[in-house]
Amino acid sequence: MPLAKRIIPCLDVDQGRVVKGVNFVNIRDAGDPVEVAKRYNEQGADEITMLDITATHEGRGTMLETVSAIAGQVFIPLTVGGGIRTVDDIRAMLNAGADKVSINSAAIFNPDFVKQASERFGAQCIVVAIDAKRVDDHWEIFTHGGRKPTGIDAVGWARKMEAYGAGEILLTSMDRDGVKSGFDLELTRAVADAVTIPVIASGGVGTLEHLAEGINQGHADAVLAASIFHFGEFSIAQAKEHMHSRDIEMRL
């Protein structure tokens, strides 16, 4: 039996609460992150990702407490992202109980940071997050919640980050994020086929079939979703059953 594809519920956290916006605005409260993480763990989530969406200096202490509380009760891999800029930030998150950190804009401003982080902590705990938007016939990386273009080609960037020691890519379509029309499958496939490290598809899940498409058509190794799980539309178990029915190897 082969390696299972993974379902990763994502907790967007602001000031110690799980929130979810549509296209990064209209934020709704979705609960206490520790309770939400425990619920997903019980439902059979394969990993949990938690993103500090405001990532202020003041909020960092709250985030570390939340990570520590989750890590004491949830025994599946936990990835933490948002505002990770230094080796000390990574160490603090790992010491609090995170298993991986997700690096986003810091990688763009200083690609060598990814190299340093990977050499220091191992590629297995370094996830590089890529926020991409379609521009003409290709995809470009955007920062600042999708508002600021960088001129960097997303596929080339993914290859570069692999060469710099990323252990995994978290790929978000900024065109689809929060709009529930499905992953950008072309983008997902272009990146997944371009690298030899695992790719997590993110942005746009509105139905269970979207999750299956991310694997079967997008060639992703894992799928990440937030709102379809937060507000009780679907459970992780339902998502796994559906993906299994589409001939995807799952941990049931």
Binding site: M1, P2, L3, A4, K5, R6, D46, A123, Q124, G167, E168, D193, T196, I197, P198, V199, H219, D221, A222, R251
Partner: peptide, 14 residues
């Protein structure tokens, strides 16, 4: 099984 390249690291549940 689908002739797609297998990713390394071997990451996930087996």
């Amino acid at each position: 099984a689908h002739q797609l390249p297998m990713k390394v690291p071997h990451m996930g549940w087996n």
